[in-house]
Design a protein around this nucleic acid. Structure first.
Lengths: 129, 129
DNA sequence: TATACTGCTTTCCTAGAGTATACCGATATC
DNA sequence: GATATCGGTATACTCTAGGAAAGCAGTATA
């Protein structure tokens, strides 16, 4: 399936089609976990420290409890965030990035950096589209 | 709407709710453009050099012409990629990252780096879930 | 008694993301 | 004439991300 005639013909920079496809695999894996409208925003919110459910919801505009709950579950399953329940009065739940979740920081920071420049750009042109 | 009682109460690390929300804005903007299953994969593919339609499709497994066409249009609209048509025999079309599109490289590289580590992790546990 | 807060869950719904398949005109190859 | 390649478009369909709204148990406040 690799190094066929098809394979070597077009990709510049010494990369065959098959090699390019290989380069894409990790990106695909990352995207599987991180894609969607909310996940990276939630993770960014948690990089500032542990947070409660309502607090996260308050910070992220437009985020409904249903989505937040769903996304937090997925983050837990993928071991990016942890959930701690405290047996207090109306129950307190805290979410926090795991050690593994914290490895996403450089990525998030790049996203934030790029987003900041991009935001300036679209504002300079008077809004988007 | 900001600096109310609500505002200062819970966010640790000296960030009020409103400040956290502000930090999230650029990330939201970036996500608006980059989210989805294919866009970042296409951009990564183009960081290796200019490519033709079919070549991109060949590299990215599972990508249908309809989606590719749609995503490329959106990348064009957002000035991340450019499209050049050559008046050859059955017509040649080449896609390339714009200068602006190239500013995404560090982000893509972080994604690739994280994805690589993540991939090892999930493979080590024998698949995901 | 009524209202409001917390941390959710549940139900219902829709827009649009994504898939599958076929087709187009041109040109070239067999 | 049959087939293939290139850069798509058309049609039709599935599926799920995401939104709106209500509810629930427990506490508190009035």
């Amino acid at each position: 399936m690799e190094t066929t005639d098809n394979d070597k013909r077009k990709c510049p920079n010494h990369l065959s089609t098959g090699e390019c496809t290989k380069q894409l695999l990790p990106v695909k894996d990352a995207l599987d976990i991180l894609s969607g409208k909310w996940k990276l925003q939630i993770i960014l919110s948690l990089t500032f420290g542990k947070k409660r459910f309502k607090q996260i919801q308050r910070e992220i505009t437009g985020l409904t409890p249903k989505m937040l709950s769903k996304e937090l579950k997925e983050l837990e399953i993928n071991e990016l965030a942890s959930r701690k329940v405290y047996d207090t009065s109306p129950v307190t739940v805290e979410y926090e990035l795991t050690t593994y979740g914290k490895t996403l920081k450089p990525l998030i920071m790049e996203l934030h950096k790029w987003g900041t420049k991009h935001r300036k750009r679209i504002i300079a042109r008077g809004g988007r589209d």
